[in-house]
Design a protein around this nucleic acid. Sequence first.
RNA 1: GCGCCCGUAGCUCAGUGGAUAGAGCGUCGGACUACGAAUCCGCAGGCCGGGGGUUCAAAUCCCCCCGGGCGCACCA
Length: 559
Amino acid sequence: MRRPPTAVFLKNMIDLLLKLINDAATAYAGPGIQVPMPGIVVPPNENQGDFSTGIAFNLAPLIKKPPHEIAAGIAKNIEGKTADMIAGIDVVKPGYINLFMQQAFWHDALASVVEKGTDYGKGDAGKGQKVLMEYISANPTGPIHVGHGRGAVIGDVLARILSAQGYNVTREYYINDAGNQVLSLGYSVLNEYYKSRKIDIPVSRQGEYQGAYIHDISDALESAFSPADINEEHIQRITEFSVNRILDEIKEVLGNFDVGFDHWFSEKQLYQDGSVSRVIGELEKRHAVKQEDGATWFLSTLYGDEKDRVLKKQSGELTYFASDIAYHENKYTRGYDLLINIWGADHHGYLPRVKAAMSALGYDAGRLAVMFVQMVRLTRGDKPVAMSKRAGEYVTLKELVDEAGSDAVRFFFLQRSHESQLVFDIELAKKQSQENPVYYVQYAHARIVSIFSFAQTKGWHTDVLKQNRNYAFSGQEKRLLSQCLLYPGLVKEIAGRREPHRLTHYLVDLVGILHKYYTDTRVVDSDADTEQRLLLMKTVKIVLKNALDLLGIHAPEKM
RNA sequence: GCGCCCGUAGCUCAGUGGAUAGAGCGUCGGACUACGAAUCCGCAGGCCGGGGGUUCAAAUCCCCCCGGGCGCACCA
């Protein structure tokens, strides 16, 4: 058997196949026709081939011929040129081109995956573009809840995927540590402190936050303040103390959830360094501001928003919108090619004004992309769980992760499109924890590890497995390999379209094929082909491990 | 009223122009004296909310309607 040159090994076999189809289609279409990149799928039935492309459908409107005729023409161009890669071509019904691959193709494919190892699935589609991803950014006025958790996982996984595809990603959490909300937190804590100690001192303001965590913070006050200093005169320091306590807890919860950040960006800093007033001044200079009813307005209607928005209230206070403008302006000045925000769907009405402000300041609002994550509705059984942050009655992310485990919660959130609402039944999540799909996937990884340790006890040298290129892969084995071969293209597509949930579905599909194969086939046997089957298992394991890493889910050696 | 999202199997959801529409859970019935049964196999379950349209081809695109969620602050 002829061994392909090293360069071929380093190349993804699917990419080679796509190029081959593309070349054949280009030759068929003739000059002046821009042939789109062909898509490739594994057809539903084995007798329909190993791979299938619908390129003829895409070409039909361009060259105005029936798909079937085009498919036949392209197939003819493929034939003959590729004896070492393609064993047979079928042109079927509406216009599919079905491809049957040579055994050599499968051996090359397997070798290329094994050689890439942990790099398999990585790519350079991002071309080093700088991306800032902002997600969660929950107010530090209370523990983060499951809705934040959903955004956290989606942001975290997308960041991992973009990084793997050659984007230069920075992850950021914007802390709303200025303004009315956090001050209210401070007052809540102070009032609670007096109340729990039965101290009767009037406070000028009630806080709006309740719950055990307020009590906990109030209890902790004495660790940082002498009792004589715990009063309204020091409300700023008490507020700061409270915010820091909550931020510490948020960081701890996120740490246990494997969600990380490069930067924690403080809103307060934007006030302290003058950014907020500067940016308002800049808008004034650009004639995008008016004074009316004693307030200062940004003329966002000039830039497509439904109505103008207040920057400074009658009271003289600045709105959160004002600091949000400063924050986003700051992002632009840091030189990112792309800004991705992950917001709760209840904020969708907020986007036009932010984009309007960026346009008004002369920035390209098109570089700001917001993914709106739909609501999570919690139930216990069929009873809805009341979610009221102010009343302090809601299920926290910490509780959920403690109950179901980080891996399961992440996987669960990643099975749904971020654009779909989801009902999270806590009872069900607990009850079904053993049958959760995440275990299905993780079990496959543990199973392969187990196969390898068994093979070693049988005397196989699993670290120096040698390919036998005369080995003929079975139909099931080719299915397993072809699924593995689709992986890099999938990761690339997920990065481009920002659809992280597709990765979990891919894994469930892959693992389904694996488990069935395992049931039907004895991997470790006494025959020489054991080595080839072990190589196949190694291939699958590489894909599983790499994909689980992108999901931030543990790939266990045993369960 | 206007805007965004959703409506697919009993439930929770994938599939967004192409081959007989899929998975998990739930029901029922099978498979362990050899590599992990957290697995596998089988049965049942769908006018893809409804109606028009575009197309060789529609769950997918367009229009209208119905139903649900979320927004529409000098709150965030």
